[in-house]
C-alpha cells in the first residue's frame, strides 16, 4: 500500500491525473501545502472516481488552518496533524510525493 502526498493546487490538473493514475486499491492520499485547497467541496469532482472505502483521503491540519479552510472542507477529507502524518507514513510501505 502506498501513501500519495501531493502539494500543489487543484489547478495543476495533469499532476492530479498522474497521481490518480498511480493509485491502487487500499492506497491513501494526503494533501499538504497548497494542495489542501483540493479538499474544498468545489473540487471534489477531482476525486469522484474514488470509492471512500477504498482510498483514504486526508489533509494536513496546519496547512488547512493557515489558509482559513477549516470549516469549508468536504466531509470526505479528514484532517490530520503532524503525528497523523507520521502515522500514515508508517502504515504504508511506500510513499510517493507528487509535486
Amino acid at each position: 500500500m502506498t501513501l500519495h502526498v501531493i502539494n500543489k493546487t487543484p489547478q495543476n490538473k495533469s499532476l492530479y491525473l498522474n497521481m490518480l493514475n498511480g493509485l491502487s486499491s487500499g492506497d491513501a492520499i494526503l494533501l499538504i501545502e497548497d494542495a489542501v485547497y483540493s479538499a474544498l467541496e468545489a473540487h471534489q469532482s477531482l476525486f469522484k472516481a474514488l470509492s471512500p472505502d477504498d482510498i483514504q483521503l486526508s489533509a494536513l491540519e496546519a496547512d488547512i488552518q493557515a489558509r482559513g479552510l477549516e470549516d469549508k472542507l468536504s466531509p470526505r477529507f479528514s484532517s490530520v496533524n503532524d503525528q497523523g502524518f507520521v502515522k500514515l507514513s508508517c502504515e504504508h510501505d511506500k510513499i510517493v510525493s507528487w509535486y
Binding site: 502506498t2 491525473l17 498522474n18 493514475n21 498511480g22 493509485l23 491502487s24 511506500k94 510513499i95 510517493v96 510525493s97 507528487w98 509535486y99
Partner: peptide
C-alpha cells in the same frame, strides 16, 4: 498508458520521487 502508473508503483520495492 497513464493508467499503468499504478502497476509500476506496485511492481517495485521502493519508489523515489
Amino acid at each position: 498508458q497513464r493508467d499503468a502508473i499504478a502497476s509500476l508503483i506496485q511492481q517495485n520495492d521502493s519508489v523515489l520521487t
